[in-house]
């Protein structure tokens, strides 16, 4: 790993590489042809379509275009997702070992953030923690899967806890953004957004590692009832996500998997998620 331009490095827990020339050309072409105006609040339809397909391979299942909101990056995803399922007088449980961005986003209007103790080795919430009074008293639970600190994952059987939480009327926001870095997502708990009136939301970066991150491009995958609320909030917050990013991403989406795997195979990416 080096810091020189054009090489690959790990920055803020993800690999970085400059955007490929085809994606640059596509973005430029779109801008040159007049794609410089407001676009749909939840995103350019073709980008949402591609994003739905993509997230279904990485920690989410049953997402369709209408479940997807394209955001101005991971932090906006955190903000929109947590704000629509919390209230200023409410409480959100966030693992003590997590990226601080989640707490910043959730606490902005005064919602109380309760940091829940994590397993020392994995940084995940243990079964005891998940059944604790603190979690029980929270209206919303935020999780990272994989953990942005350790790379550890909640496995398939985590759905037992999720079902219990949803039965209790709680909302769950899961940051699945690092899942592309896993060698396999087979055993990872996946967020199902197919329920029309569900309460589980997935968030993360879109097509990471290949240079789109600095343009700010994130996603929210949510059940339709929640997605509608998030779109209304994004209308007020930022109207839409920038067109240069969306049109570059549209091109990148077609070639991302091959380029990402090629880049990953040349670097020590596996180490990142098993620290």
């Amino acid at each position: 790993m080096t810091n020189s331009k054009g090489s690959i490095e790990i920055v803020e827990s993800y690999m970085y590489k400059d955007l490929d020339s085809e994606s640059i050309a596509s973005s430029y072409s779109a801008l040159k042809s007049g794609q410089t105006h407001y676009v749909d609040v939840p995103g350019v339809p073709e980008v949402r379509e591609a994003a739905a397909e993509w997230v279904n391979g990485y920690g989410v299942i049953n997402a369709e275009k209408d479940n997807i909101i394209i955001t101005s990056g991971l932090q906006e995803s955190r903000f929109l997702a947590t704000q629509v399922v919390t209230s200023p007088e409410g409480q959100i449980a966030i693992p003590a070992v997590a990226n601080p961005g989640a707490s910043l986003a959730a606490s902005l209007r005064g919602c109380h953030v309760e940091n829940v103790a994590c397993d020392e080795e994995t940084g995940l919430l243990s079964s005891d923690a998940l059944e604790s009074d603190v979690v029980s008293a929270s209206q919303t639970i935020f999780l990272e899967n994989p953990s942005r600190v350790t790379g550890a994952i909640y496995s398939n059987d985590f759905s037992t806890h999720v079902n219990r939480f949803t039965d209790q009327g709680k909302h769950i926001v899961v940051d699945t953004g690092l899942s592309p870095w896993l060698s396999s997502v087979d055993n990872m708990y996946k967020v199902d957004v197919s329920s029309a009136d569900g309460s589980i939301i997935a968030i993360g970066e879109l097509w990471p590692g290949l240079g789109i991150e600095p343009q700010g491009l994130g996603f929210i995958a949510a059940p339709l009832n929640v997605a509608e609320k998030i779109v209304k909030m994004k209308q007020v917050l930022s109207i839409c996500t920038s067109t240069p990013a969306q049109f570059a991403a549209l091109e990148l989406s077609g070639s991302w998997k091959k380029m990402f795997n090629d880049s990953k195979s040349k670097n020590e990416i596996e180490a990142l998620v098993s620290l």
């Binding site: 101005s72 932090q75 906006e76 903000f79 910043l104 343009q215 700010g216 917050l237 920038s242 240069p244």
Partner: peptide, 17 residues
């Protein structure tokens, strides 16, 4: 501080534009 909580930096390409 609020900007950091809400969204992070604006699109860098847009910034150069």
């Amino acid at each position: 501080l609020l900007k950091a909580s809400v969204s992070g930096p604006a699109n860098v390409v847009s910034q150069y534009a």
